[in-house]
Simulated scan of single mutants.
Amino acid sequence: MHKPALPQEGSDTFNDQVRIVLVETSHSGNIGAVARAMKNMGLGNLWLVNPASFPDEASYARSAGASDVLDRAQVVATLDDALADCVLVMGTSARGRKVPWPVIAPPQAAATAGEYSRQGRVALVFGRENHGLSNDELQRCHYHIHIPSNPDYSSLNLAMAVQVVCYELRMHYLRSLEEGEASPNLEAMVGPGDRGWDVPPAEVQEVEGFFGHLEQVLVDVDFHRRNNPRQLMTRLRRLFQRARLDQMEINILRGILTSVQKAAGTLPGSDKQKNTADEGQEKGHV
């Protein structure tokens, strides 16, 4: 028995209007893998042109929870049947043509699909595992999609090729959300101040307090000499400034420095520091 379908993401015009068309797929497991790739990217409109075997257990096993995409798949006898009601057709091709044809990369294909999906149905066509689409089939396409893979090893598994194109469709879809405003799904989160970071960025006075504390500890443990500083603090400043510390990180670092001072007996007010100062006074060193 095949795995039950996981919840489907809410449908909308773009995802419903864009269909993935597989031509004469020879291995049914690849159909399941394609269904999984599609559902990963929020797509569910799959058309199959004369598959060697479908439906069967292998396709559902490879779908890994995307069985609803397979349940909805349309099986037709010819490519013309799959394309008849479409306003735009794009086919994947890795080969050069004697007669040049409009060729676009996956990001441009996704943008073009998004534009035409407002006018009608769009088909993205993928060929057979062993030799892709025929010349006659490619001539039914308005554009050819070329995935710029490694020229020394350019052949992609069918599901991998579908995943690449569906990923670009997903990115275009997310950018189109919120009427042109940046989607939180696409915003980078790399440091304090970015949406989703758990602690506010450290303020300048907090960072300067840390640098002062750090320098004092380095002096205390005889690692740094203020009268011969060279570039130590400059380079340490560059290191920590590059990290863009948040308030919690500043507190952690200062806690570590305080523990070092306690262990070294140099923390202001510590018994060891008082004893050292008393000894120095007795010897006339302070």
Score class of each variant (00 low, 15 high):
residue 192 P to A: 12
residue 184 P to S: 06
residue 222 D to W: 06
residue 67 S to E: 03
residue 286 V to N: 11
residue 284 G to R: 10
residue 279 E to K: 15
residue 92 T to M: 03
residue 146 H to R: 13
residue 155 S to G: 08
residue 209 G to Y: 03
residue 151 P to W: 00
residue 179 E to K: 15
residue 286 V to F: 15
residue 128 R to Y: 05
residue 118 R to G: 09
residue 1 M to V: 15
residue 279 E to L: 15
residue 149 S to L: 14
residue 187 E to I: 11
residue 153 Y to M: 12
residue 194 D to C: 15
residue 84 A to C: 10
residue 282 E to M: 15
residue 77 A to Q: 13
residue 247 Q to A: 05
residue 247 Q to P: 08
residue 83 L to T: 05
residue 29 G to W: 02
residue 91 G to D: 11
residue 125 V to S: 12
residue 264 A to V: 10
residue 132 G to V: 07
residue 207 V to D: 03
residue 205 Q to S: 11
residue 53 S to R: 04
residue 247 Q to M: 13
residue 175 R to Q: 14
residue 81 D to L: 05
residue 229 P to F: 07
residue 237 R to S: 08
residue 19 R to G: 04
residue 258 T to S: 10
residue 219 V to T: 09
residue 34 V to N: 11
residue 137 E to L: 12
residue 11 S to Q: 10
residue 42 G to W: 06
residue 147 I to Y: 03
residue 21 V to M: 02
residue 192 P to E: 00
residue 161 A to D: 05
residue 247 Q to L: 04
residue 176 S to T: 13
residue 169 L to D: 04
residue 223 F to V: 15
residue 19 R to E: 15
residue 82 A to R: 01
residue 167 Y to W: 15
residue 71 D to E: 15
residue 265 G to S: 02
residue 108 Q to F: 03
residue 181 E to M: 08
residue 260 V to N: 13
residue 39 K to I: 00
residue 14 F to C: 00
residue 122 V to S: 05
residue 282 E to R: 15
residue 164 V to I: 14
residue 213 H to R: 06
residue 139 Q to K: 12
residue 62 R to C: 04
residue 221 V to D: 02
residue 237 R to I: 12
residue 198 D to E: 11
residue 107 P to R: 06
residue 159 A to N: 01
residue 117 S to T: 01
residue 179 E to I: 10
residue 158 L to P: 08
residue 165 V to Q: 14
residue 42 G to P: 00
residue 252 I to N: 05
residue 195 R to W: 07
residue 186 L to G: 05
residue 52 A to N: 14
residue 80 D to P: 05
residue 85 D to R: 10
residue 144 H to Y: 07
residue 89 V to P: 01
residue 152 D to C: 00
residue 54 F to I: 14
residue 115 E to F: 03
residue 240 F to G: 01
residue 224 H to T: 13
residue 239 L to R: 06
residue 82 A to H: 13
residue 276 T to K: 13
residue 39 K to E: 10
residue 237 R to L: 11
residue 177 L to C: 11
residue 256 I to N: 12
residue 257 L to G: 06
residue 54 F to P: 09
residue 17 Q to W: 00
residue 174 L to D: 12
residue 29 G to D: 06
residue 260 V to P: 08
residue 70 L to H: 10
residue 256 I to L: 11
residue 206 E to Y: 10
residue 94 A to T: 12
residue 125 V to D: 06
residue 244 R to M: 11
residue 86 C to S: 12
residue 241 Q to I: 02
